[in-house]
Design a protein around this nucleic acid. Structure first.
Length: 479
DNA sequence: TTTTGAGTTGTTCGA
DNA sequence: GTCGAACAACTCAAA
C-alpha cells in the first residue's frame, strides 16, 4: 500500500487536505511534483513564475526531508508521468488538491477516470479556496456575475479550520529516481535578471508564514486606509505565496480574524474586513474562471469583441519599459520588472493607461503581467484585466478613466513611490513630481531634468487620449 | 412574473 | 474651493 501524493499549486504541508488524507490512509507516501511540458500549453507559467517555482519546490523538498521524506521531481505530460510512477512504484492510490484552470479541470477529470479504470484509488481535495466555484450560486442555481452578492453569500458560509502539519510523513522503502531541480533551469543565469526579485521575496511555506504573521500583527488593521498607498507597506504581499499554495486562504482568514479579535476584543476592525473582501475577490475570480472558462481570452461582454484596439508598438514598448512620461505609470512598470510584483493601486493605473490612453488590447497587458509577475494567476489576472477594460462581468464603467497624475497626487502625495522607481525626476517638488511636463524650464533645470533626454515627455496627452477612448467605447455600444 | 435597487477601486464640469 | 451631477444604459440578484 503506497499513496502517490501529487503536488500542484498547493506547495505546503500545513492545511493540506490531500496530504492529511494520505497520512490518514496509512502506509508510505511518495510526494511528486510534475513539471508539465512548458512549451506545449498556452498560459504555461512565465519567467517570474518559474523563478518562484524553483524556490518553492526547494523549500517543499526541504520540509519533506525534515519529516523523513523527499519530493520526487519529474518532467513531462502529467497524465503520462503519473501512470509511469504507478508502474514504477506499485502505488495503489493517487491523492491531490484540485486546480481550477480550464485545462487543469479537464486533465483532472481525464486522469480520475483513467486511474479508476486501472483500479487505482483516487481522491482530490480543496486546498486553494474558501469555497469552490460550484458550491456558491444564486437562488436560481446560477453562477454569480456581480461581486457584492457573491461576497455576501461567501461571507455567510463557514470557513473550515486549517489543519496542522504532520510531524512525520513516511516515505517509501526504496528511493525513486528523481530529476535534479537544477536540471529544469527554472531560474535565469545569463543574464540573471532576478536580482531584484531575489532581494524581495522568500518563496516557500516558511516565507509565507512569516509574511502572514507580520501582516496580521501590523498592517492588517490599517489595511483599509493604507492599502492604496504604493509608497507605504500597507498590503499583505501574500499574493505569490497564495498563488503557489504555500499558504491557503483559510489559514489567512483564521489568522487575521483571530489576531484582530485578540487586539481589539471587538468585532472586526474595518481594515481587516476590507482585507477579507480582497480574499473574496480572489474567490470571485476563480468563480468566474470556472464558470466562464474563456475568461483569459475573450471579453465577457460580447460587444467588446469589435472594440477598435490599436496597433501601437512604440507605445507598448514605452509602457513595458516604464518610459511613458507619466511617473506613476513608469514607477509601476519598473517595480514590476525589478521585483516581479506591483502594488495593486498601481496595477489599475498602468492597466487603465495601456487600455484607455494607448487603446492597446487588454490581452496584451494581461500577457505581459503573466510573464513578469511572480503572483501571475490565471483567475485573478484575467478577471482583473477584464475589469479595468470594462468588458468583465462586473466591470468598471467604460467612462472610468484613470488620470495618472491625479492618481499619483492622491495616492502617493509625498512622491515616495515615484522617487524610488523613477529617480531621474526625484528632485522635483511634490507638486510636480507626478506631472513633470507642467514644470517651468527653471524648475526642470533645478531638478536636473531635460524632458525627452533624461526623462520622456508624455507619450500621449492624457486629456486628448481620454476623449479618444470615450469615443471608441461609445462606438461599440451603439450597434 | 415583474419590479426594484444596486453595482470596488473615477473624473470632469458647472453651479 | 467645494459639491453634486453627469457620464449610459444595462444587467444582475433578490424580493
Amino acid at each position: 500500500m503506497l499513496t502517490l501524493l501529487w503536488f500542484g499549486q498547493d506547495l505546503r504541508l500545513t492545511d493540506n487536505p490531500a496530504l492529511a488524507a494520505a497520512i490518514a490512509r496509512g502506509g508510505p507516501i511518495t510526494p511528486v511534483f510534475v513539471l508539465d511540458d512548458l512549451d506545449a500549453r498556452e498560459w504555461a507559467p512565465g519567467g517570474a513564475s518559474l523563478w518562484w517555482l524553483h524556490g518553492s519546490l526547494r523549500a517543499l523538498d526541504e520540509s519533506l526531508r525534515q519529516r523523513g521524506n523527499a519530493l520526487v521531481l519529474r518532467r513531462g505530460p502529467a497524465e503520462m508521468v503519473i501512470n509511469q510512477l504507478l508502474d514504477e512504484t506499485g502505488a495503489d492510490a493517487v491523492y491531490w488538491n484540485r486546480r481550477y484552470e480550464p485545462w487543469a479541470v479537464a486533465r483532472g477529470e481525464r486522469l480520475k477516470t483513467a486511474l479508476k479504470e486501472r483500479g487505482i484509488e483516487v481522491w482530490s481535495f480543496n486546498s486553494a479556496l474558501i469555497q469552490e466555484p460550484w458550491t456558491v450560486s444564486t437562488q436560481k442555481g446560477e453562477p454569480y456575475r456581480v461581486f457584492t452578492p457573491f461576497w455576501k453569500a461567501l461571507r455567510a458560509t463557514c470557513v473550515s479550520e486549517p489543519a496542522a502539519a504532520a510531524a512525520r510523513i513516511p516515505g517509501p522503502a526504496t528511493a525513486l529516481e528523481r530529476e535534479p531541480l537544477s536540471s529544469w533551469a527554472l531560474r535565469p543565469t545569463a543574464p540573471d535578471w532576478a536580482g531584484g526579485i531575489q532581494a524581495m521575496w522568500t518563496p516557500g511555506e516558511a516565507g509565507a508564514q512569516a509574511r502572514l504573521e507580520d501582516f496580521a500583527a501590523g498592517a492588517a488593521s490599517d489595511y483599509r486606509d493604507k492599502r492604496n498607498m504604493p509608497g507605504v507597506a500597507g498590503t499583505s504581499r501574500l499574493s505569490p505565496h497564495l498563488h503557489f499554495g504555500e499558504i491557503g486562504p483559510r489559514q489567512i482568514w483564521h489568522s487575521i480574524t483571530a489576531q484582530a479579535l485578540a487586539n481589539t476584543g471587538n468585532p472586526m476592525p474595518a481594515g481587516v474586513e476590507t482585507y477579507l473582501s480582497e480574499i473574496g475577490w480572489r474567490e470571485f475570480s476563480y468563480h468566474l474562471l470556472f464558470h466562464f472558462p474563456t475568461l483569459p481570452e475573450a471579453p465577457l461582454r460580447p460587444e467588446f469583441a469589435r472594440f477598435p484596439w490599436e496597433e501601437n508598438a512604440k507605445g507598448l514598448a514605452a509602457w513595458r519599459r516604464g518610459l511613458t512620461g507619466y511617473p506613476i505609470v513608469d514607477a509601476g512598470m519598473r517595480e514590476l520588472w525589478n521585483t516581479g510584483w506591483m502594488h495593486n493601486r498601481v496595477r489599475m493605473i498602468v492597466a487603465s493607461f495601456l487600455i484607455k490612453d494607448l487603446l492597446i488590447d487588454w490581452r496584451i497587458g494581461e500577457k505581459w503581467f503573466w510573464d513578469t509577475l511572480v503572483d501571475a494567476d490565471l483567475a485573478s489576472n484575467s478577471a482583473s484585466w477584464q475589469w479595468v477594460a470594462g468588458c468583465g462581468a462586473d466591470a468598471a464603467p467604460y467612462f472610468r478613466v484613470f488620470n495618472p497624475s491625479l492618481q499619483g497626487a492622491k495616492f502617493d502625495p509625498e512622491g515616495d513611490y515615484v522617487r524610488r522607481w523613477v529617480p531621474e525626476i526625484g528632485k522635483l517638488p511634490n507638486t510636480l513630481v507626478h506631472s513633470p511636463w507642467e514644470a517651468r524650464p527653471l524648475e526642470l533645470a533645478d531638478a536636473g531634468i531635460r524632458l525627452d533626454r533624461t526623462y520622456p515627455a508624455p507619450i500621449v496627452e492624457h486629456g486628448a487620449a481620454r476623449q479618444r477612448a470615450l469615443e471608441a467605447f461609445s462606438r461599440i455600444k451603439k450597434s
